[in-house]
């Protein structure tokens, strides 16, 4: 049977192989994604972001188990950084999800960022669609977790769960730029440790000062390792989806996400044109040489390159 049919039938191996093909930018794989795309859009896609060591993988594990109790099928994409030096990576999020491995209703895929900035990999978007078509009702996307540059996740998922931990103290102030805006639900994880109340209170205060929407995000205390508060958190995540459906915000959010995805692809193709072994690529080499010799300047150089792309 063909790969697309097998994925529609919920075949894990087919699903895994297609993700690999897309990660490796194989045309054949991308053609299959094009074919199955229309079948996606049914899953609730949830981003899990927050500082490294904050408990993203542990919480994802517990949320997935809660959904399994409720009879739902779960997909998980866990992204870890690729070394810019070797191109290799160690993808270790599964350590916290060991007993999900053999659950027939769970599919977990680890991905390296492979040079992409922003906390995700270039193929995360397509991997989500593949898991969606495969039949996952809920898909979690765990970001790298490097703080400031995690904004990509908002433009990729339906709901962002932002994890904070007690004891960050003044750090909350430091990381709030760009962080407060992206959370749809805030989870103060490790609430079994001291200081969770204080952290939750600080978060509430910051959210009171301004939030992006008419729905003020909830702040919930959880302990992933003790599995406390997870079910309530899940209810809140689902209620965020219900809210978006009721207010027609889901369509708008998915439109925005699609726009970003398309623009990223356009940007990539243009960069390939400019940097590849094309006419424009050669032109760039020539202009760079002239610019270094001060025979021209970067601004005129840019005009020449843009003109060449348009031709």
């Amino acid at each position: 049977m063909e790969l697309d049919k097998r994925i529609l039938n919920g075949d894990k191996r087919a699903c895994a192989r297609l993700i690999t093909m897309v990660e490796n930018n194989e045309k054949e794989g991308i053609d299959i994604v094009k074919k199955i795309y229309k079948h996606s859009g049914n899953a609730h896609v949830i981003g899990i972001t927050g500082p490294p060591g904050g408990g993203k993988s542990t919480l994802t594990d517990k949320l997935a188990k809660e959904l399994r109790k409720r009879g739902k099928k779960v997909g998980i994409i866990a992204v870890d950084p690729t070394s810019p030096f070797s191109g290799g990576s160690i993808l270790g999020d599964r350590i916290r999800m060991q007993d999900l491995a053999t659950d027939p209703g769970v599919f977990i895929r680890s991905m390296g960022t492979r040079g992409n900035l922003g906390g995700l990999s270039k193929s995360t978007q397509s991997a989500i669609k593949i898991l969606d078509v495969y039949g996952a009702d809920y898909i979690f996307v765990e970001t790298v977790g490097v703080g400031q540059s995690e904004v990509d996740i908002v433009k990729t998922v339906d709901t962002v769960v932002m994890i904070m931990v007690p004891g960050l103290g003044d750090d909350i102030q430091a990381i709030k730029a760009g962080v407060m805006e992206i959370g749809d639900v805030f989870a103060v994880n490790k609430s079994d440790l001291d200081g969770a109340d204080k952290t939750a209170l600080e978060l509430e205060m910051m959210l009171d000062m301004g939030f992006k929407d008419d729905k003020k995000p909830k702040v919930l205390k959880v302990s992933s390792s003790k599995n406390e508060g997870v079910s309530t958190l899940l209810d809140e995540v689902i209620s965020h989806m219900d809210y978006m459906v009721d207010t027609d915000k889901l369509q708008k959010r998915r439109e925005e996400n699609a726009k970003v995805e398309i623009l990223n692809l356009v940007e990539e193709e243009i960069m390939q044109m400019v940097l590849g072994k094309t006419k424009t690529g050669q032109l760039l080499d020539e202009i760079s040489k002239k610019t270094a010799l001060r025979k021209t300047n970067p601004y005129d150089g840019k005009d020449i390159i843009v003109k060449s792309i348009k031709e």
Partner: peptide, 26 residues
Amino acid sequence: RDAGMEVIYTGLRQTPEQIVATSIQE
């Protein structure tokens, strides 16, 4: 990793079933 490979690391005490399930998904 330093040789440019993507390593999936799953921690201690894996059963053969877990190892095979993970190989498939990854």
